[in-house]
Nucleic acid binder design. Structure first.
Lengths: 224, 224
DNA sequence: ATCATAAGTGAATATGGATTCATCGCAAGT
DNA sequence: ACTTGCGATGAATCCATATTCACTTATGAT
């Protein structure tokens, strides 16, 4: 024990510390996402951020390298949610490529709806980050969308889908998922979240599923 | 002539002045769009702006109220292009609602491709503007998309389209048009502008045109 | 009770950059 | 030649705010 004075408390201590740090990070991440969505990254001062999160300015620098780092962390947080939630949703959907596409899309939309404030920042503040952060985001975006692309490819090669441009369809689905966050102010006038997902799914699948297989996917193609 | 010393030169003078002012505005608007797309509104200093446009800092304030005003002007410039180009494109497409939808979409995409730098600012920098500017943009966006919504409504009521949510389809088409600018860095790896428009048109129409009418729109539904 | 360490604070600093304005050059009229 | 006025300039001003750091408070071990 010579090297570790507080030896016996070591392990639980570390755990407690980590838990506290985690809690603080969340607190700051959430406050940042909320404020930055409303006023934009540059419209939010560290002072305002500190108040929103009920901490002092100085403390923010204990948990994040600075304002830029915080922004990057907020964005990465959403992308990590995609990375964990989308693949598992696709798995649970079974082996049918069409079902997988629908599940991936819904999972995307779910994450975006839950992180609505943060999701828009991916688009709005990308130029704020240095090229390092930008590249990280780009590659995460491409990685997390791979399950979706795979499902589309499978669907095409198994003859369930008409000949489609995989990249383009994937891009469209991602765009539609993000669209819920981007145009939320407008869409929520007419649509509930669930209707949005259902209708968009139906629209896209209607466009790409081979006509003879459509009856089999009635449950995905109907909009109510 | 007592009230107007330079009477005889009045008219031509005014014209020349207006022309010069117009030229300067364009010069500044273009420089601003270019720089702001690359570095974001807050990443561009008035100094840098002045250099890019080859004028002095002070001069910018002769033509625009300030940095915010300039941003608003850049955005309004794109929206005005929509307002003039989309309706005329729709007119030229004739009376068929499906043709009109396709024409409107293409016109949107054309304008966005031409103003690619400025188009993204609509999304990225909206929070930078005060609520006044934001509202102006929102209402212009809604106004300029009315021709598209009208065409979709006509298509639905004339039985050419399956039952669709007009608002949602319009929203999707707009999103896809903007998508070209938003994800240009990624899309251009695989697609030319014209392929993008053609394929997206086909995709959407494939989803919403009544099956029995599809043969009639082969030229819009084929992707090559 | 005492001490060590970590967590947290916020006033002071330093900097970047938007805006202003005193001044200049120049074209056209006299 | 000279003067009038407009287009143009850019150094000086001024302010917002990101970041730092000397200090205080809380925790818990001895």
């Amino acid at each position: 024990m010579p090297s570790r004075p507080r030896s016996q408390a070591q392990d639980p201590d570390e755990a407690a510390r980590a838990a506290r740090a985690e809690w603080r990070s969340r607190q700051l991440l959430d406050a940042a996402a909320r404020l930055m969505e409303r006023d934009g990254f540059h419209g939010v001062s560290m002072q305002a951020l500190a108040e929103e999160a009920s901490v002092s300015v100085g403390l923010i620098y204990r948990y994040f390298g600075g304002k830029d780092d915080l922004l990057l962390a907020v964005i990465v947080d959403v992308l990590e949610a995609f990375a964990t939630r989308v693949p598992s949703a696709v798995e649970e959907a079974g082996n049918d490529p069409v079902e997988r596409i629908a599940a991936a899309f819904r999972a995307y939309c779910d994450v975006i709806d839950e992180h609505r404030h943060a999701a828009v920042l991916t688009y709005r503040e990308s130029r704020t980050l240095g090229s390092e952060g930008r590249n990280k985001i780009k590659s995460m975006e491409i990685d997390t969308s791979e399950p979706l692309r795979a499902a589309i490819r499978d669907g095409a090669s198994s003859g369930l889908l008409i000949a489609v441009d995989t990249e383009l369809v994937a891009h469209d689905l991602l765009l539609m998922a993000h669209g819920w966050a981007l145009k939320h102010w407008y869409l929520e006038q007419t649509l509930r979240f669930d209707d949005y997902v259902t209708k968009q799914t139906a629209l896209v699948l209607n466009a790409i599923v081979e006509p003879q297989h459509r009856p089999h996917y009635r449950h995905l193609l109907a909009t109510h």
